[in-house]
Amino acid sequence: MGNIVIYISITMLILTLLAGLIRFVKGPSIVDRVVGFDSMTITSLVMIGVIAYLSNRAIYLDVAVVYGLLSFLGVIIVAKYIQGGL
């Protein structure tokens, strides 16, 4: 039972990553690409959580915390670059 739920959610997460990739390749403007990047980041955070649960090691979640902090910084930097100041 538990394994089936994990299988289904991992499949959904990989499909979400794929959709973000398609938007990144197609996106006409740079903002579309940044939105795809943001979506992929949040999906990878959830995926890191699932991996931490599977291998039963809580220390993996620290990577997710650090990554969440730095991706926020990245989005802000790109937006400032688009608006001209940095």
């Binding site: 990047f37 980041t41 990878s44 995926m47 890191i48 991996i51 291998s55 090691r57 990577v63 990554y67």
Partner: peptide
């Protein structure tokens, strides 16, 4: 940057947090 993000997830899979 995206390549770097996925590389970090791969390092995690190889149990190197």
């Amino acid at each position: 940057g995206v390549v770097s993000l996925f590389a970090s997830v791969l390092f995690l899979l190889m149990s190197a947090p």
